[in-house]
Amino acid sequence: MSHGNMNLTLKIWRQKNDKETGKLVTYPVKDISPDMSFLEMFDVLNEELINKGEEPIAFDHDCREGICGMCSMFINGRPHGPKRGVTTCQLHMRSFKNGDTIVVEPWRAAAFPVIKDLTVDRSAFDRIIAKGGFISVNTGNAQDANNIPIPKPDADASFEAAACIGCGACVATCKNSSAMLFVSAKISQLALLPQGRVEATTRVKNMVAQMDEEGFGNCTNTGACEIECPKGISLENIARMNREYFVANIKS
């Protein structure tokens, strides 16, 4: 089946499971359309592999519109590839040139073990949220929503932090495998809202403790996370988290 006129060489990380070692395997792909998304190009390759009787490449993906945070490819040394502000599923082949060689690896971080090929385990993020990434309000306890007026700039800043999709690109790109951008985005979202202030102290301490326990590294302010974040989560959040953490430790 012909789609377009791009021919590419892919070098893709293949790894059977978390116990065996993996390696880069070269696959040529032909007749790729510039209108395809990067993942649709993988669909074409996988279809070919299946037809040849080989095992297709395992990769995570779901919504394919840049919001679920499931896709996670490290492309030519950058999470989600060369374009800013997009996830892998939103990256289109028109961002590459005919004849390019493209290296595709999984997220690499001790806290994100490889499951198979390009699929990694990001459950550490869930465990961090479970330690405090919430407001403790049971269903049915709420007052009228407009009883808590929130200045628009605060609401907007909170929303911007809340836009994080939990994909883990920040961890993947960080030389320290730090999860500070992810954790600070959640802490900021809630710290900026009056509803979230009530538990601010315990929240930041518990979440940071879990982050450390999961084996994520520390932040050395290189700022790669902000550059690679598909949702543009700002480094300011890390500063805010540090401030919250400092205040929380002085208080207790």
Binding site: F134, I135, V137, T139, G140, N141, A142, Q143, D144, A145, N146, I148, P149, I150, P151, K152, A155, D156, S158, F159, A162, Q189, L190, L193, Q195, G196
Partner: peptide, 19 residues
């Protein structure tokens, strides 16, 4: 809406602070 706002869902607001 009450429940979600109480849980910290940042719904859009007007300058007066209302939803």
């Amino acid at each position: 809406i009450d429940q979600c706002v109480a849980m910290g869902v940042p719904l859009a607001r007007e300058y007066g602070g209302m939803l």
